[in-house]
Design a protein around this nucleic acid. Structure first.
Length: 329
DNA sequence: CTAGGGTTAG
C-alpha cells in the first residue's frame, strides 16, 4: 500500500512513460527550468580557474576525446568550443554530449544541445565547411533524438542514411533504433527490426539482443526473453554480465529467486564476472521474499568478490530485516 | 578505433 502511494506521488512528479520514470518531465516540471537556468549561468560565466589552466584545457579539447568526468568539465570545454572560430566539428560536440549522457545528466545534455543550436543547423555548417560527417555522427544524432523522444526526427535521419549510400546504417544504428523502440515499450517493433538485421550484412549482435532481452524482462515476458537468449547463444553470440543481469532482473520481478540463483551460477560457470548490478537485484528479491539471512549471504559473497555493496543494497537489507521483525512480533 | 544495452528503496 505504502509503495502504491509512493508510486502515485512519484508519477505526479516524474514521467510516467515506462523507461523514463527516473527523468523529470520536461514540460511540466519546474525543476527543469531551475536546472536550465543554472546551466545557462554556467555557460555564460567566466571560468573560475585562472587563465593558465585555459591553455591545457584547450589542448585537451583539441584532442580526440576530451576527458570529461564531471558536468562542470563538460560545460567548461563546451563553452570554449562555442567561442572558437571556426566552430569545432560536430564530432567534438557530440563526443561531449555523449560523455555527459554517460554521466546520466540528461538535463545537462539537453541544455548543452540547445546552447549548441539545433544539431541539424550545425550539420548544415558541417557540409558548408566541406567536412564529412560519418556513420558515427549520424548514430549519435539518432541516439540524441531518441533520448529526447523525437522519434520522427530519428526515423527521418535513419531513412536518410538508408537512401544516401555512403552512410549505410550499421550494427550500432540498428542497436540504437532497437533501444528506441524498447524505450517506448514497443518490443514487437524492436524484434521486427532484429529480424530485418538478419537479412542485412550487419547481423544482430550482443547489444541488439541484450537490449530486447532486457526490455522483455522489464515487462516480465521472461519466457520470450529466454527464447531470444537461447537463440542468441545458438548463433554463437556469447552473453555477458549485462545479458545475465537483465535475465536475473526478469525472473526476480516474478519472485522466482531460485531461477535467479541458477542464472547466477550459470554466469559464474561461464567465467563471466557478476557485478553490483547482478547481485543487487538478487539481494532485493530475497529480502522481499522474507529471506533476509540468505540475502546477507549474497552480500557476503559480494564482499568476498571485492564488489562493494552500495546504498541501495544495504537499504534492501534493512527493509528485509524490518519485514523479518514485523513477522516475528 | 570512436557510437548503441543492465540495478534503484522509501
Amino acid at each position: 500500500m505504502m509503495r502504491n502511494i509512493a508510486a502515485a506521488a512519484a508519477a505526479s512528479f516524474y514521467c510516467s512513460s515506462r523507461r523514463w520514470r527516473g527523468m523529470p518531465c520536461l514540460h511540466t516540471n519546474s525543476t527543469v527550468v531551475v536546472f536550465a537556468n543554472n546551466y545557462s549561468a554556467f555557460l555564460h560565466s567566466q571560468p573560475s580557474k585562472p587563465i593558465k589552466s585555459t591553455r591545457t584545457q584547450l589542448e585537451q579539447a583539441a584532442r580526440n576525446s576530451p576527458k570529461i568526468t564531471t558536468v562542470e568539465d563538460a560545460f567548461n570545454v563546451f563553452d570554449r568550443m562555442l567561442q572558437k572560430r571556426p566552430l569545432p566539428s560536430l564530432v567534438r560536440f557530440t563526443q561531449i554530449l555523449t560523455q555527459v549522457a554517460k554521466l546520466k545528466h540528461y538535463l545537462a545534455v539537453i541544455s548543452l544541445y540547445n546552447q549548441m543550436g539545433f544539431s541539424l543547423s550545425i550539420l548544415g555548417k558541417f557540409f558548408k565547411l566541406g567536412l564529412e560527417p560519418n556513420v558515427l555522427t549520424f548514430n549519435t544524432l539518432i541516439n540524441g533524438y531518441l533520448l529526447e523522444h523525437r522519434v520522427a526526427e530519428a526515423a527521418a535521419l535513419f531513412h536518410k542514411m538508408m537512401r544516401a549510400g555512403n552512410w549505410k546504417p550499421n550494427v550500432v544504428t540498428f542497436g540504437t533504433l532497437i533501444m528506441g523502440f524498447c524505450m517506448r515499450g514497443n518490443n514487437c517493433a524492436a524484434i521486427q527490426l532484429l529480424r530485418k538485421m538478419e537479412e542485412r550484412p550487419c547481423k544482430p549482435d550482443l547489444v541488439a539482443y541484450s537490449t530486447i532481452i532486457d526490455s522483455l524482462c522489464k515487462d516480465t515476458q521472461v519466457v520470450d526473453a529466454l527464447n531470444l537468449f537461447s537463440e542468441m547463444i545458438s548463433k554463437g553470440i556469447a552473453p555477458n554480465v549485462i545479458t545475465y543481469s537483465s535475465l536475473m532482473n526478469g525472473v526476480c520481478k516474478l519472485g522466482e529467486w531460485k531461477e535467479a540463483i541458477r542464472l547466477l551460477n550459470e554466469t559464474v560457470s561461464k567465467n563471466i564476472f557478476p557485478d553490483v548490478f547482478t547481485f543487487k537485484v538478487l539481494v532485493d528479491t530475497l529480502c522481499k521474499e522474507g529471506m533476509v539471512v540468505e540475502a546477507e549471504g549474497v552480500v557476503e559473497m559480494m564482499i568476498q568478490r571485492d564488489i562493494e555493496p552500495d546504498m541501495v543494497t544495504y537499504n534492501s537489507l534493512m527493509d528485509g530485516w524490518l519485514l523479518f521483525a514485523r513477522r516475528n512480533r
